[in-house]
Each structure stands twice: as structure tokens, then as C-alpha cells.
Design a protein around this nucleic acid. Structure first.
Length: 288
DNA sequence: AAGGTTACCTGCCCGC
DNA sequence: TGCGGGCAGGTAACCT
């Protein structure tokens, strides 16, 4: 479920568990992803200390010493799982997770073992994600990042700025909100949620929006993303959910996935339409 | 160059 | 029960 809040939650969950620890071993279990995992990634990462874990758009950046950053993207179905503790196999006395066949999971692509024995697994059913590396000093020039739009949580992301962005695009507001070359982090779920709260119909053409409407979209973009990050943070602290899987928490949506259910404001049935191959959820009475 | 479509991949759910 | 179609939270290579 990785949009900005989920990726942020993964980063916040991961950092305290690996920061200042050294990567002891990296094992490629299945390199087949959108960009294949580079063969030399294990040797590059091995013996490097983790300096920080950061988010950039929907990417996870594991910043390492020696000018190295490991870049992870979760695609549609990527997951990061951190073993809670070392689990040695009784028979072999091996601490490798993968020496215990019962713990093996389908679609695990990468295993990282830290110096304290904790193990990080990248799992991705649909293989749309990626795990690569680059020089930290050249991060912003990387092909993946060179065309990214503005981050929502920077001071320059103002209502005025957003309105200017909208004014340059002659297509639906829904697809503009989801366009990472304009604004990063908003995917199909939060685009519907933001437009519902702002009372703007998803098919409205972006450059037709009034400044007042852009201001509402700006306000709810920040509010909704913040609330979702907060919810993710709560789930990280919840011991009942502390199964090692990071970034997956119960969402409460107002519009997304509520097709046929009553609008929480006016009780009109939530409708769906297809836009650019993606389903949009909206209330035809509230959203104009 | 903007805007739209298609493909990548697996699994699940639904209707027949 | 089995099969086919459509669908799923993302991105980028294509085409016009």
C-alpha cells in the first residue's frame, strides 16, 4: 500500500532498528524486479554502517558510510519485514533466517543481515519495486530522481505554488495530483481522499480550478498525509501489530474503496469512475 | 512536450 | 470445479 505515508512509516520503523549498525551480510534471493537487483549489491553493502534512513518521494533511502545509498521502492506490493530477534536454527546453529525452511516466504527478494543478527527482508509479490544503490553525493542526479516534482512537506509547497502547478496542466485534477513529476507521494488512494475532503470532482480540469479550490486541496493534502503518517506511527508502537512488517496499518478512508457506501457527509452513494486506468472514488453531490 | 495508453507481474475475486 | 476476465496502493516506455 505504498504511498507517501506508508513509505514514511517504513522509514521511521526501520531507522531505529538499523541506524549505527553495520550490514554483515546481504543475500539476493530473487533479483527479478522492475530494475533487477544488481549482482554486486551485496558486496557493495557489506560491512557498511547505516548512517540514516530517509524518504524521498515514495523511495526509501538507506544512507550508508563511504558515499553509498541503497535505494528501495515498494512498487505496488513491496514489503519490508524486520525479524524481531535472532532465530538460530537448532540443528545447524545457523542464524540465517533462510536456513529455516519453515520461515521461508514466497516472493522474498532480498535478505540483509545486520551485525546484531537482525534480518531485513524485502518481499514483493508483483515485482514492481526495486532495490539498487548509488553514490550518495550523486543522489539527486540519479535517473529516478531527476524528474521528481515538489515534496508536500517542504516550506515551498504552498497553496499558491500548488495553484501554479495546476494552472500548467490541461488534464484532470486527479491525474495531476498523482503525477510524481509535479507533486510526489500522492497515489490513487490519497488522491481520492484529498479531492473528497476538498469537495473537488476528480474529473475537473486542473487549470480550471479556482485559487480557493487549490487552497483546499493544499490544506487537505497536508492534513490527510499527516494523519496517515500519524496512524502509521501508532501502529508501529502497537505491540499487537509488531510482527516485524513495517508500514502497513489500518486506514480509515472517507471515499477510497467505499463504492456504493453512503457518503460520510451527505449519505449519497459513493461512485467510481475510471481515470487513466485507475479507479477514482467520489461523492457526486459533495464534489463539484 | 503534454497527455493518453500499455506493459511490467502475481494473486484474488467474480461470473459463467 | 475450472476457467477467463477484471482488478489491485506505481512507474515509465511508448505513441500521437
Amino acid at each position: 500500500m505504498p504511498e507517501l505515508p506508508e513509505v514514511e512509516t517504513v522509514c521511521r520503523g526501520l531507522e531505529p532498528r538499523i541506524k549505527n549498525h553495520v550490514i554483515q551480510e546481504v543475500v539476493i534471493l530473487n533479483p527479478k524486479l522492475r530494475i533487477p537487483i544488481p549482482k554486486e549489491l551485496p558486496s557493495k553493502l557489506k560491512n557498511k554502517k547505516v548512517l540514516a534512513v530517509k524518504r524521498k518521494a515514495k523511495y526509501i533511502l538507506i544512507e550508508l558510510e563511504a558515499d553509498l545509498t541503497c535505494i528501495i521502492h515498494l512498487g505496488m506490493s513491496g514489503r519490508v519485514i524486520v525479524s524481531k530477534e535472532e532465530k538460530p536454527n537448532r540443528k545447524t546453529n545457523q542464524t540465517f533466517y533462510y536456513h529455516d525452511k519453515e520461515l521461508k516466504n514466497k516472493h522474498d527478494h532480498l535478505l540483509i543481515i545486520m551485525d546484531d543478527g537482525s534480518q531485513i527482508i524485502y518481499n514483493d509479490t508483483r515485482k514492481f519495486g526495486l532495490v539498487i544503490y548509488t553514490a550518495t553525493s550523486k543522489l539527486n542526479q540519479h535517473k529516478l530522481f531527476s524528474k521528481l516534482g515538489i515534496e508536500p512537506f517542504v516550506p515551498e509547497f504552498t497553496a499558491k505554488k500548488l495553484h501554479e502547478i495546476f494552472s500548467t496542466r490541461n488534464k484532470s485534477i486527479k491525474s495531476v495530483l498523482m503525477d510524481a513529476s509535479l507533486i510526489v507521494g500522492i497515489g490513487n488512494i490519497y488522491a481520492s481522499e484529498i479531492l473528497f475532503k476538498a469537495k473537488v470532482h476528480p474529473e475537473r480540469i486542473a487549470n480550471d480550478l479556482t485559487l480557493a479550490e487549490s487552497k483546499l486541496i493544499h490544506k487537505y493534502t497536508l492534513k490527510i498525509l499527516e494523519a496517515a503518517i500519524e496512524a502509521g506511527g501508532s501502529s508501529l508502537k502497537d505491540y499487537r501489530k509488531a510482527d516485524g512488517e513495517l508500514g502497513y496499518f489500518q486506514h480509515s478512508f472517507s471515499a477510497y474503496d467505499r463504492n456504493g457506501k453512503p457518503c460520510l457527509v451527505c449519505s449519497t452513494e459513493i461512485e467510481t469512475i475510471k481515470q487513466n486506468g485507475r479507479t477514482s472514488f467520489f461523492c457526486s453531490k459533495c464534489q463539484k
